[in-house]
């Protein structure tokens, strides 16, 4: 295949991945709608029988009527379809990302500009979600993740799309693979972590206040303790990766390419801010009065700085940042 064929294959694969993700989102919407429509009594019965996320196998509640059984089947089927479609979409996206590597001569890692970072980042989020799904029972996350992926792919296509081409000379270094690869992985972990922290805040709020209209929906989610633990573990994976990407690999490359390992470039400053905030999150989890809600809010702020660094810096400081490879 020629580079042009790879390029158009990549564009098509990404487009189809987007479409499949839309369908996956629909599957999860049906799952949620059916869950919401479930009468409250059955909900709580199922809730006691199947503590979500606790590792107990799903078992039909003995108190459920045939109608409820049918509804449970419908919820289960819709959810499974959503996950299956997410797998298909992710395979397509992976094919698109790989093809993008071969769309320039010589082949290269598929992260030379914002469009490619975004694709790879989305792939990272999808891969982390799918990898943890069976062990950590993450299906409650399905609607969020697929919606997120659809939005990100759309934005990437509409605002960031760039034709494939060779790397600019500043990126001719194997540190590109190490530095950007680690940063993308860390971003994926932080993204899923932020999602968990956000749901934790919702769920913890409801648990504190008692029933609300959202109650039925929130029963889909694991307990706030389980969410807090999961969120911590994701951040605990993301933080060392980020430390490596931003504070070790980045400075080594900067020293090599720009003659100074720390330049207070806007992107570096914001990477540092993100690091400090996630460090604050880890400390907050160990501090009386900050555990739980405050810590989760700090984690969300951390993710906001990460997003701003990724998107905002290139748009606002494009000219002055040494990282403006968009």
């Amino acid at each position: 295949m020629t580079t042009e064929q790879f390029a158009s294959f990549s564009d098509n694969a990404v487009m189809f991945a987007g479409i499949v993700y839309v369908l996956a989102t629909l599957g999860h919407v049906v799952e949620w709608a059916a869950t919401l429509a479930r009468p409250a009594a059955v909900r709580s019965a199922v809730e006691t029988a199947v503590p979500v996320g606790a590792g107990a196998p799903a078992a039909a509640s003995s108190t459920a009527s045939p109608e409820d059984d049918q509804r449970s089947v419908r919820i289960e089927t819709a959810g499974r379809i959503g996950v299956a479609l997410t797998v298909v979409g992710t395979l397509l996206l992976a094919a698109g990302v790989v093809a993008r590597s071969f769309a320039s001569d010589p082949w290269r890692v598929p992260w030379g500009n914002m469009y490619e970072f975004t694709l790879t980042g989305a792939l990272g989020v999808a891969a982390i979600y799918l990898a943890l799904l069976p062990r950590m029972r993450l299906r409650w996350m399905g609607l969020f993740v697929t919606t997120f992926l659809v939005v990100v792919l759309m934005l990437a296509n509409l605002t960031l799309e760039q034709e494939a081409g060779p790397l600019v000379p500043a990126l001719h270094s194997y540190w590109l693979v190490i530095h950007v690869g680690a940063a993308i992985l860390a971003t994926g972990a932080f993204a899923v972590g932020a999602l968990t922290a956000g749901v934790f805040l919702l769920k913890a709020g409801v648990e504190r206040r008692g029933s609300t209209r959202l109650h039925g929906l929130l029963e889909m989610f694991p307990s706030s303790d389980a969410l807090d633990r999961l969120s911590y573990r994701l951040h605990a994976v993301g933080f060392p990766l980020w430390t490596f990407a931003a504070l070790i690999a980045g400075p080594i490359w900067a020293e090599y390419a720009w003659g100074s390992y720390w330049n207070w470039d806007p992107k570096e400053v914001w990477a540092f801010i993100t690091w400090v905030i996630y460090a604050a999150y880890l400390h907050a989890r160990a501090t009386a009065g900050w555990k739980g809600k405050a810590a989760a809010i700090i984690a969300l702020i951390g993710f906001a700085t990460l997003l701003f660094n990724f998107v905002g810096i290139n748009f606002f400081f494009g000219a002055s940042s040494q990282h403006s490879y968009a």
Binding site: A279, A280, H283, A284, T287, G289, W290, I298, S320
Partner: peptide, 24 residues
């Protein structure tokens, strides 16, 4: 105390921002 360390960390993050907005 941990609480102070936490606040100082958040303050450090906040204090870093102007340097990314104003040329240095």
């Amino acid at each position: 105390s941990m609480r102070t360390a936490l606040l100082l960390l958040l303050l450090l993050a906040l204090a870093s921002i102007p340097g990314s907005v104003v040329p240095q």
